[in-house]
Simulated scan of single mutants.
Amino acid sequence: MANTVRRGYAPSPFGQLHYAECGSGEAVLLLHQTPRSWTEYADVLPLVGRAHRAIAMDTVGFGASAKPEGPHSIERFADGVEALADGLGLGAFHLVGHHTGGVVAVEVAARLGDRVSSLLLSATAFVDETKREAAPARPPVDHVDPKPDGSHLVELWNRRRGFYREGEEAALTRYVIDALTVLDRVEEGHQAVYRYRMEERLAHITAPVLAVCAPEDHYSLPALEKFAAALGCETAVLPGGHVPAPEQLPGEFADVVTAWVDRPRP
């Protein structure tokens, strides 16, 4: 069936990279936030997969993908994306990134040029010198210290409880599972974002860009204007949602992705 999610692995210099996919046709590659996995797009894949080959990968170091030693960086995450695209035989493909995945998508698009047919940046941080300088003073986002009584599990849950509405506990549970999978390195994706020299890479992007954000995601919403100024790109605010917008609004999110991918271009 076209909407059946299939899972597999592709080789890379780091080891095997895990991905899930749905549908056929033009490839749409979706990159998740930190410290998540492909499950952030579990409800989006079948919807985008109705008209396209929707692929959600586990970033290098996260989910079921290889977990190499050494420091994480946006560049290394992008190496993994390239390796997956090559391993799956993707020529040109559309690229979608959410939060950290959006920063990784910037680097991939800057490297691959016209091979990226379009770029959708969802709730993506605009990383400039001001953000890098402020990073050392920022409190940890997801770090918890393991406790013998397991109370760190509740602490981890509460780290993101405020982003999820009542009734969205299943999605929050998926976050906790993903974070526990990389608990000893759970903060490193965020740190990689803050080190990235994004402003030096933006000029290399040739793909058409759409930047979107959920209205309650106050961390990322101001970046829309910055991307518009830097790239001359279009922007849009989703009809609701917070940091986990792809899980809170999978239908609306998938509609935005599909409309952007399908837009006629010269």
Rank of each mutant, 00 (worst) to 15 (best):
S220F: 12
M1V: 09
A203Y: 02
Y175A: 07
Q33A: 13
T181K: 06
P139E: 08
L120F: 07
A170T: 12
G150D: 03
C213E: 08
I55E: 08
E129R: 15
R50I: 01
P146Q: 05
M57S: 03
G91A: 14
G189V: 07
L90H: 08
H94M: 06
P215W: 10
V104Y: 10
G150Q: 01
A207F: 05
E188L: 12
R195G: 14
A56S: 12
V209C: 03
G15C: 05
F77W: 08
A207V: 03
V44R: 02
L45F: 09
V116E: 04
H52M: 09
G162F: 04
A56M: 11
V81T: 11
V193P: 00
V44G: 05
Y194T: 14
L183K: 09
P68M: 10
H32D: 10
A110L: 08
V60S: 02
E69L: 12
K147Q: 15
G49I: 02
R265N: 08
D184F: 00
T181C: 04
A137D: 15
G101K: 01
F14G: 05
D255V: 09
P246N: 11
E199A: 14
A54Y: 03
K67T: 12
L29M: 15
L153V: 13
L231H: 08
Q33V: 00
A236N: 01
R265Y: 04
E26P: 14
V60N: 00
D43C: 03
T124W: 07
H204K: 15
P222F: 01
S12K: 07
L95T: 08
L119V: 06
P139K: 11
F227K: 10
R197E: 13
A83P: 09
A228P: 00
V176I: 13
G189L: 07
R132G: 11
L238N: 01
L45G: 07
E225F: 00
E169P: 14
A228D: 00
Y196M: 05
F14I: 02
L183E: 11
E187C: 07
P140I: 12
D149C: 02
E168Q: 15
P140L: 11
G49N: 01
R263S: 01
R161Q: 12
V256S: 00
T130V: 15
V81M: 06
C22P: 07
E187A: 06
G189Y: 04
R174P: 10
E166N: 07
R174L: 15
D149E: 02
A85D: 08
G241V: 14
A105E: 04
D79M: 11
S73H: 12
V116K: 03
H32M: 11
R201K: 14
L153F: 07
G23F: 10
H190M: 06
R265M: 06
S151M: 02
A66D: 12
F126I: 13
A83E: 06
E252N: 01
D142R: 13
R161G: 09
R76D: 12
Q191A: 14
R161C: 06
F93W: 08
P250L: 12
M1A: 15
V106G: 08
A2S: 12
E82S: 14
A135Q: 15
V108K: 06
V106W: 05
Y164P: 11
R50Y: 03
A85G: 04
W38N: 02
R138T: 14
T235G: 07
Y196I: 05
G61L: 09
H94F: 03
T59R: 10
L156G: 05
Q16T: 14
D149F: 01
V182R: 04
V96I: 14
H99W: 04
H98C: 12
D255K: 13
E225P: 00
A20S: 13
